[in-house]
């Protein structure tokens, strides 16, 4: 047994939930997200030998994931397949989720997210979904702090315009 390899794999295991949400944010559909996750893991494991110690594994995996999605997206377009991932009717498991956000709101949110520019979607993913600090996001994306700020502000502004304003009176009711 190779201890290094096992540790490396365990790091990937620990990363799975976050990587899966990232796949979800890229694809906008849960089945596509799991396919993409599977392809990413498969590719990562096959490239273990090429992984240089000291490389940030998280960034390495996220980049691989994104590139795979771009490939998939392109090939779907070439094949003439739909690139619109908004087919929620095929997600029966989502029925149990209407507690968290109602189904309509969820599809509206994902539809809005899919209309954002890639770089805006990624910054929203890091900060609003995963709770990265600006500094962490700036290191992760290798961009200046100021760019994190302005990109995030633009993304939020776009989302404000894309999403139906929430009913504040209802939402403000205390528990």
């Amino acid at each position: 047994m190779n201890n290094n390899a096992e540790q490396w794999r365990d790091h990937i295991v620990a990363l799975l939930p976050r990587l899966r949400r990232y796949c979800f944010s890229l694809t906008g559909s849960a089945p596509d997200a799991d396919d993409l996750l599977q392809n990413t893991i498969e590719k990562a494991l096959s490239k273990y030998d090429q992984f240089e110690q000291g490389t940030d594994l998280d960034r390495w995996m996220f980049r691989m994931c994104k590139n795979l999605w771009i490939d998939e997206w392109r090939s779907r377009r070439v094949r003439g397949d739909s690139v619109d991932p908004m087919d929620y009717k095929n997600e029966p498991w989502i029925d149990g989720e209407d507690i968290l956000v109602n189904k309509l709101k969820m599809s509206e949110v994902r539809s809005a997210m899919n209309k954002l520019q890639d770089e805006q979607r990624v910054i929203i993913f890091l900060v609003a979904i995963e709770g990265y600090s600006y500094k962490e996001a700036s290191i992760f994306l290798d961009i200046p702090l100021g760019t994190v700020m302005s990109r995030l502000a633009r993304a939020r502004k776009a989302l404000e315009q894309l999403l139906t304003p929430p009913d504040l009176d209802i939402q403000r009711n205390p528990l």
Binding site: R21, L100, V101, K105, M106, V109, M113, A128
Partner: peptide, 8 residues
């Protein structure tokens, strides 16, 4: 809403 939608 966004966090909840993607954490689902």
């Amino acid at each position: 809403s966004i966090a909840q939608a993607y954490h689902s």
